[in-house]
Simulated assay, not measured.
Amino acid sequence: MTLEEIQAKLEESIEGSTVTMQGDGCNCSTLVVSSVFEGMGLLARQRMVLAAVRTEIDSGELHALSIKAKTPEEVA
């Protein structure tokens, strides 16, 4: 799975998100910025991101994903 494929899947799954990816296809990190994270705790945000790629993780196609999930205000 390429970084571009992971990025597209996350952007499609998390409303109004901007996704930045780093790493290689199976071990990567992401910064997901979306207003849907407002009022959510860190764990809930990470669970939302992981849920978007759960199939790929379960299949082993995506081995590790480091997640930063922030609101637009937190990034500014």
Rank of each mutant, 00 (worst) to 15 (best):
M1G: 12
M1L: 12
T2K: 15
T2H: 14
T2C: 03
L3G: 13
L3E: 10
L3S: 10
E4C: 11
E4V: 15
I6D: 07
Q7E: 15
Q7Y: 03
K9A: 09
K9S: 09
L10Q: 09
E11T: 08
E11W: 07
E12K: 11
E12L: 02
S13W: 02
I14T: 08
I14A: 05
I14H: 01
E15G: 11
G16R: 14
G16N: 14
S17A: 13
S17C: 11
T18A: 07
T18I: 14
V19A: 06
V19D: 05
T20Y: 14
T20I: 06
Q22R: 15
Q22T: 15
Q22H: 13
G23F: 00
D24H: 11
G25S: 03
G25Q: 05
G25N: 06
G25F: 00
G25V: 01
G25W: 00
C26F: 10
N27P: 05
N27L: 13
C28V: 02
C28M: 06
C28R: 05
T30V: 03
T30K: 01
L31M: 08
V32M: 03
V32N: 13
V32D: 05
V33P: 07
V33G: 11
V36F: 01
V36C: 15
F37S: 10
F37N: 10
F37I: 01
F37T: 04
E38R: 14
G39V: 11
G39E: 00
M40G: 11
L43H: 13
L43R: 08
A44G: 12
A44D: 15
Q46H: 12
R47C: 10
M48L: 09
M48T: 12
M48N: 10
V49H: 04
A51N: 15
A52V: 03
A52I: 04
V53I: 05
R54A: 13
R54W: 03
R54K: 08
T55Q: 12
T55S: 12
T55V: 06
T55G: 04
E56C: 02
I57W: 00
I57L: 04
D58W: 00
D58K: 01
D58T: 02
S59K: 08
G60K: 03
E61N: 14
L62V: 02
H63S: 09
H63D: 09
L65D: 10
L65R: 09
L65P: 05
L65W: 07
S66Q: 15
I67C: 04
I67R: 01
I67N: 09
A69Y: 01
A69R: 07
T71R: 03
E73K: 03
E73N: 02
E73I: 04
E74D: 14
E74A: 13
E74Q: 12
V75P: 01
V75T: 10
V75G: 08
V75E: 03
V75S: 11
V75N: 13
A76I: 02
A76V: 05
